[in-house]
Design a protein around this nucleic acid. Structure first.
Lengths: 196, 196
DNA sequence: AGAATAAAACCGACTGGTCGGTATGTTTTT
DNA sequence: AAAAACATACCGACCAGTCGGTTTTATTCT
């Protein structure tokens, strides 16, 4: 029965995400994680080789939220694709408020640790490429004006990262999912070709 | 003669910025900073009460770069103001590649330490307000289309933060100061009222 | 000018605590 | 009985900050 094993593993992950969120990666100690999970250190190191492994496992799971939003509603006119993406914003911003500190610390690690850097740079480049080709498609189908797809994609990714950061920095500063939706609107206004 | 004192103080700051950049705030030990500065721990704690104080002192200095860029070229038509701001981009991105890891760690601290949060949220809100009023002025003088100034300002700040982040994540990914300049262009295109 | 003195600047060993990871042993499952 | 899962005590390294002392600088007095 690997039931118990799975249970323990997921309890460690749950506890880790809490500890990382509250204390950050550096301050979240394995001991605390174990305590919160109601599990011994032996169990912890039975399931994960290092603390960093736990972190990468969590990261992997979190990125799937974005993939979900990005992959959603394909095979439609491009403007609609962008529009539908905004449906995920409330969920994204909610999950960000819990996970972004951890995410930031992960970026920090990324700039210094090659293993983590690979795990971070890959999805980031994926998003950039995805938006660039979306825009290219939009131009091809005639719904977008002719901009540099790469440049516009950078703007989109930048705005997304920036908005997420701001939502962390100043949670009360605005209704961030609303701001994000309106930002998409604003960017769309300058991208969508006028009907005529 | 407080010459020696000043010298020591600035050597500590120099060493600190290097250590923070290379190892991050958490891993940069006071001992290392002292060693790099060629100064004893006693001297360190003579000049600064805590490690965090050093950090805040550095932060203060770094933010002045942005203030400089933001304050530059006032009393002009608003589109020109934005245009001239881009002159600072190469300098900003260069200094960011050294200081952004530290900057990120500072954001992290910001989300957990009230003292640091105050030091971080204040300038951030300043920039938002500054851009919002710039845009409002642009609309008033007739050079901008009628957008929500607050929303557009959020987009600008977001894009700026996002671009800085990306330049850290993927330094080789693009010529970031160029991308930033073109991004301003792109945003201006949708903000500036068509001549007619 | 030169000695005396006070204060600022600086030194480095030490403390108390934390933490990631290990070694060894015990329990549970197969 | 073998192997997987789990428990616990422990180690070595690290580190922010302290403290009693020494050196350098500035000031005052003679």
């Amino acid at each position: 029965m690997q039931q118990r094993s799975e249970e323990t593993r997921s309890r460690i992950l749950e506890a880790a995400v809490k500890q990382f969120a509250v204390n950050g990666y550096g301050k979240a100690s394995v001991d605390n994680i174990c305590e919160q999970a109601g599990v011994s250190k032996g169990a912890f190191y039975h399931h994960f080789q290092t603390k960093q492994d736990v972190f990468l496992a969590l990261l992997d799971g979190w990125l799937q939220i974005f993939d979900q939003a990005v992959e959603a509603s394909k095979d439609q006119p491009v403007p609609e694709t962008f529009q539908q993406m905004t449906d995920y914003f409330p969920y994204i911003f909610e999950s960000a408020s819990d996970n972004l500190p951890m995410f930031l610390e992960f970026l920090l690690q990324a700039s210094r640790d090659d293993k983590v850097w690979q795990a971070s740079i890959a999805p980031y480049r994926r998003y950039h490429k995805h938006f660039a080709s979306l825009i290219k498609k939009g131009i091809a189908e005639g719904s977008f004006v002719e901009v540099d797809p790469n440049l516009a994609a950078r703007l989109i990714v930048s705005a997304a990262m920036g908005l997420l950061l701001q939502s962390l920095l100043d949670p009360q500063g605005a209704k961030w999912d609303k701001v994000a939706r309106e930002t998409v609107q604003l960017m769309m206004n300058s991208l969508v070709r006028e009907e005529n």
